[in-house]
Amino acid sequence: MLQATPTPATAAAMSGPSGPRPRSVTAGRVGLYAFLFFAALFFLLPMYVMIVTSLKTMGEIRMGNIFSLPSEMTIEPWIQAWNSACTGLNCSGIKVGFWNSVRILIPSVILSIFVGSLTGYALSLWRVRGANLLFAVLLLGAFLPYQVFIYPLVRIYSTVGIYGTMTGIVVTHIIFGLPLMTLLFRNYYASLPIELFKAARVDGGGFFQIFFRLMLPMSTPIVIVACILQVTGIWNDFLFGVIFAGRDNLPMTVQLNNIVNSTQGEKLYNVNMAATILTALVPLVVYFISGRWFVRGIAAGAVKG
C-alpha cells in the first residue's frame, strides 16, 4: 500500500479559500429586502383594514379609526354576510351566490381542462392538417378583447335556447378557457419525448387510447396548473356571470356587487367587508396551497414556444 504523504504543495493549496464561500451582506441585498418588505406592506394593508373592519360593530366603525384593532370583537357581520345580507328584496346572504359559483365552477373547470388537453394533444402530437394555422387562430382569439364576442354569443345562445342557463355559462367558460388551456397542454405535450408517442403508435394505440391511457396519466403537473388558472379565473369572473348565467345562477361575484351596492338604509361596512373576504377566499386559498405549482406551471407553459 502506498501512503500519500502531504507535500508542501497541497499544504499551500489548503491555506487559500476553502469550504463554503462566506455570505456577505451587500447594499444590493439590503435594498432588495427593504423593497420586498414595503411591497408586502403595501399589499397587506388593505387586507388588514378589511379584516379588522369586518370584525367591528357598526358603532365602532362610525368612530372612524380604520387602522385600529376592534375593541370588542364580533363575528356577527360574517354570519350576516353569509346568511342574511340583502340584495334588493332578497335577504338570504351571499351563500346563494357561493353555491351558484360552485355549481358553475365544477363543470366549467373539468370540461374546459378536458377540452383544452384534448385539443392541445391533437395539435402537438398528431399531424393534423393545418394544425399551426388552427393554433394561430386560437391564440389570436385569446388576444382579442372578449367583449367583442359577447353580442354574437348572446344571439347564438338565444337561438339555441341556452341563454341565461347553467349550460350557457358553462359553455361560455369552456370557450374562453380554450385558447389558454390549449396553449398550456400543447406546450406540455410537445415537451414530452416524442418517442413515447411513437412507441404507443407502434403498440397499436389509437387517438383516444393514447390520450386516455398514456398522455392523461402523465399530465398531472400541467392539470394542476390548469386547475389553478381555471378555478381562480372562473371564480373571479363577473362579466360572463352577469350576462350569461341567468337570474337563478348568478355567481358569488355578481351577488357581492349587488350586496355592496344596494342602496337601502345605512351602508353596513362590516358586512360588506366580510362578504368580500368570503368571495375572495376561494382564489386566495388556491394561491396559498398551490403557489409552488403555480409558478412551475407558468414557467413550463411559457418557456417552450
Binding site: 419525448p193 412507441a199 404507443a200 403508435r201 407502434v202 394505440g205
Partner: peptide
C-alpha cells in the same frame, strides 16, 4: 404502424412512465 407486424425499440427507451413493467409489456 400497428398493422405492419413490426416492433420498435427506441434509443431513449420510451417506456410509459406511469405504468409498471407489466403494464408496459402488455399495453400493445
Amino acid at each position: 404502424p400497428k398493422d405492419r407486424g413490426i416492433g420498435m425499440v427506441f434509443q431513449s427507451y420510451a417506456l410509459y412512465p406511469r405504468m409498471t413493467v407489466t403494464g408496459n409489456l402488455s399495453f400493445g
